[in-house]
Design a protein around this nucleic acid. Structure first.
Lengths: 246, 246
DNA sequence: GATAGAAGTTGACGCTGCGTCAACCTCAAG
DNA sequence: CTTGAGGTTGACGCAGCGTCAACTTCTATC
């Protein structure tokens, strides 16, 4: 089945002019253009538009959206990450709701307000960095062509490398090593080398990735299984490495 | 307590330049400006900023936000409506989550997609109209100076007028009257006259208000207590009236 | 076939809400 | 005094549209 430009513009709450603009940018190319120049969109386009709309809603600019979409072509995996982001957004709104309730209660009771409480949940400016890092990671682990080119054994070995790195971080942390020690920095070097197979990590990327390991419970769990506080330890070690070497 | 411009810019995820811009527009005026020209914000400013950020998040332009904020000065009432809007937004995201789950399931099972399902929850372009209508209504029912100037008896009489109108809509609907009949149009005229006490309803406003009666369950309930389908009946009657008379 | 209105096209322009930068001042700590 | 953090105003430009004009195509009706 396919839809006209106005069909989906209406449903998406946008305009045909915007969709043509997206076409011009190569962001959402219609599945077919009729002999009359009319654009038609199929289901694949629909899903792609859904992804675009979500990322716009999260505040990403169009070039970043294009990067994210090009970085992950496996629709099912993308939709799963989609879900995770929406759930995060739902949680943020829940925090806003709690914040307004607190403000309301304190206003009625004449209690002093705390700025952090009043504005909790309203800062969503880090989404672009967070999303591109997350999608970046998804891309090279699951959807990237390079990844797909690996045999199962190669994939296993690559993943094992990361498990080894995580284990070694844990050991060093447990042994009380300093984040800037040679031992720990060597683990970070292996980690960054591991990242470098499919990309060229910038200093900012490495620092941001370390922060993401702490901020996102799922990544934190990857490291903290080796001991409580390992994720933060990794973040700090990566920061040191990035500042010294990248 | 008070905060510097950077204190709250950071918490709100915005810039001091934006806050100065808001000051220039008169949208968020600092509670104090030091002898050195530095801006400081108190708790009242914090709450006002919270309201601004929410309305921005909902897509309202700054002039509309100013209008909304000026229309409702009772902080507690405003925060309650705030909550209602956030809950609505949470529900919209829940619909998005359901939509992505549906897309995911259908993609995995190879089922055809329906455009309405895929894009459900992604259209949030009507917020400006909806919010201003809702706040407009709140303003004149609760927070408006005119409303406050009425005695309790006068308030009761004014509200009774609306109850009478709703009852009469119900009776006409039950009697099978047509939305464009003289009888029903006379009820609409009384309704529009009732609205006209504190404002000058435009054609678009009246049509949009009728649509809101159907779209928002709380308003629908006001009318449908007189019989199922009365809200839609009122909407249609108002549309006919607006197109003929406004 | 003619007509009218809906549905689409491209291209140009302008708008809104910022973000960035320059040039400057003020404050605080050493 | 010096330096860097924290603030100011003003100017400019940007991104992502929305609107409009001028046009073509399609569809339904007579």
């Amino acid at each position: 089945m396919e839809w006209s430009i106005q069909d989906i513009a209406r449903l998406a709450g946008t305009t045909s002019r915007t969709l043509r603009h997206y076409d011009q940018l190569g962001l959402l190319v219609p599945s077919r253009v009729g002999g009359n120049g009319y654009r038609y969109y199929d289901e694949e386009c629909l899903v792609r538009l859904q992804r675009i709309l979500l990322l716009r809603q999260l505040g990403l600019g169009l070039p970043a959206i294009a990067e994210v979409l090009d970085g992950q072509r496996d629709t099912v995996a993308a939709l799963r990450t989609h879900l995770a982001l929406l759930e995060q957004e739902r949680d943020r709104i829940a925090r806003q709701i709690a914040s307004v309730r607190t403000t309301l209660r304190k206003t009625e009771e004449g209690e002093p307000l705390m700025a952090e409480e009043v504005l909790d949940g309203f800062d969503h400016t880090r989404y672009e960095q967070e999303v591109t890092e997350r999608w970046g990671r998804e891309a090279y682990e699951r959807g990237d062509r390079w990844w797909r080119s690996l045999s199962d054994a190669e994939k296993k070995a690559f993943q094992q490398q990361h498990l080894d790195i995580a284990r070694d971080y844990g050991r060093a942390h447990q042994a009380g090593a300093h984040v800037d020690s040679d031992e720990v920095q060597d683990i970070v070097r292996r980690h960054v080398d591991w990242l470098s197979v499919t990309m060229n990590p910038t200093k900012e990327y490495v620092i941001g990735l370390g922060e993401m390991y702490v901020a996102d419970p799922r990544y934190t769990a990857n490291y903290d299984r080796h001991g409580e506080g390992v994720a933060a330890f990794v973040r700090d070690a990566m920061k040191v490495y990035a500042e010294r070497n990248l």
